[in-house]
Simulated assay, not measured.
Amino acid sequence: MVVPLELKPAPQGSGDPSSAAAARELAERVARPTAAERDRDHRWDPALFAELAGARPGPGLAGPLVPRALGGGGLSATQTCALLEGLGEGARDPGLALAVGVHAVLATVPLRAFGSPRQRERYLPLMASGDWIGAVSLRQTQGAALAPTVTARPGTPGLGGWVLTGELDLVAGGPVAHHFLVVATHDGGGRTAFVLDRSTPGLLIAESAPAAMRTCAWGRLVLDGCHVPDDAVLGSVGGAGTEVEPLLASLDWVFSSAPWLGVMRALVRDAVDGVGERRVFGRPLVHAQSARFTLADLATRCELASGLLYRAAGQFDSGGRPTRQDAATARLFVAAAARTVAEGAARLSGPLALTSDHLIARAHRDALFFAETGGGTEVLRPVIAASLLGLG
């Protein structure tokens, strides 16, 4: 079962300008001033997240896809993409934008789509308010084949439930999360998704951060014989491979890419400023045809990325989710475009833009990391090819 993310028609092909503008203005005001400092310190700012999550009136970013009846924004997928795009452009902070997107989309939508009434009523209102943060390992967004193994076995007779054992790293939001979405493999085959509260006995949480996306709160989960009740199962037992995992992959490919569209637009603006201010060999760089061609290429990549991304997002609003080909194509192109735009902006802006405090340097570093997540080209290109050949 796949639950549509929106009950009313949503425009396809472009985002909601008002949503993007509101999120951009909020993020520029509350997040951008400290972005470089938080990046240097590898620091997650809970007060900043709370302000972004609870903005009223305005684009509360914690639960845009949570139904209004459960305290969320009740937005469409295209509107949510626009919010995340605006966040990326205004905050100029890819790590923060990733953390918000993982909580607001990857952790909430599977609960909305496959959660029991009790699970939805317990988790979603507090997630939408930002009081409870949900976390997901980026190792598990593309299925069990790419993830470190977490195993599930039935609990001891009389106790019921399940016992989970294993480890997961790259858990976005791990150190600050109230609960975690975990997919576990059964000895006899099949996989089941679980929602684990932080207080689960046997669950250990450690900080463990990659070199990039420094403003996201990263963690590692160690599941040492965690006993979870039957009502922690998300979806059906053994059904994660056809329920939660395909949805999670599409959500990751589309919504984790949305902030990067905003970051790319910010980079193009910086490149325009750099071209206008720099002189090379005594001549204004703005007069150089090569610089103008580069600017045109960067702007074109932004618009192509936008078209692919919002086409995929619009399919969520049509009663299902994007085809694997469309979602993978959007992610593959955005990841490549982010690197190209960062490199082009660096060439046009000159040496001063390469300092660690500048968006261009931070975005170039984080874009390399972004390109390797979501399965990377090793997953995305075969998915596209298989779709073209009618094999999947």
Rank of each mutant, 00 (worst) to 15 (best):
V3K: 15
P4T: 12
P4N: 09
L7C: 05
K8Y: 09
S14N: 12
G15E: 08
D16T: 11
L26N: 14
A27C: 13
A27S: 12
R29P: 07
R40I: 01
D41T: 06
H42G: 14
R43M: 11
D45S: 07
D45C: 10
A47T: 10
E51L: 11
A53I: 01
R56E: 07
G58M: 08
P59D: 08
L61R: 04
A62M: 12
G63L: 09
L65E: 06
V66M: 04
G72Y: 06
G73H: 08
L83A: 07
L83P: 07
G88Q: 01
D93G: 09
D93H: 09
L98C: 13
A107S: 15
L111E: 07
A113Q: 13
F114W: 14
R118P: 04
R120V: 06
L126A: 10
G130S: 11
W132H: 11
I133T: 12
T141N: 04
G143K: 14
A145M: 03
T149K: 13
R153S: 01
R153C: 00
R153P: 00
G160N: 02
G160H: 02
G161T: 05
L168Y: 07
L168V: 03
D169Y: 04
D169V: 00
F180P: 03
D187S: 14
A193C: 12
F194K: 08
L196Y: 09
A206G: 12
S208Y: 13
T215P: 14
W218I: 08
G219T: 02
L221S: 14
V222F: 09
V222N: 03
L223E: 10
G235K: 05
G238R: 01
A240C: 02
T242N: 04
E245K: 00
P246W: 09
A249P: 08
A258G: 08
G262T: 00
M264T: 02
M264V: 02
D270K: 05
D270N: 02
A271M: 11
E277P: 05
E277S: 12
V280S: 12
R283F: 15
H287C: 11
A288L: 14
F293C: 10
A299R: 15
L304D: 15
A312R: 13
A313V: 08
A313I: 03
S318Y: 11
G320R: 09
G320Q: 09
R324H: 08
D326P: 01
A327M: 04
A327S: 15
L332Q: 14
A335E: 14
T340N: 13
V341L: 04
E343C: 03
P351D: 08
L354N: 11
H364Q: 08
H364D: 01
D366V: 00
A367C: 04
A367L: 04
F370A: 00
E378S: 14
L380D: 04
R381Q: 13
P382R: 02
V383D: 02
L388A: 10
G390N: 13
L391Y: 14
G392L: 15
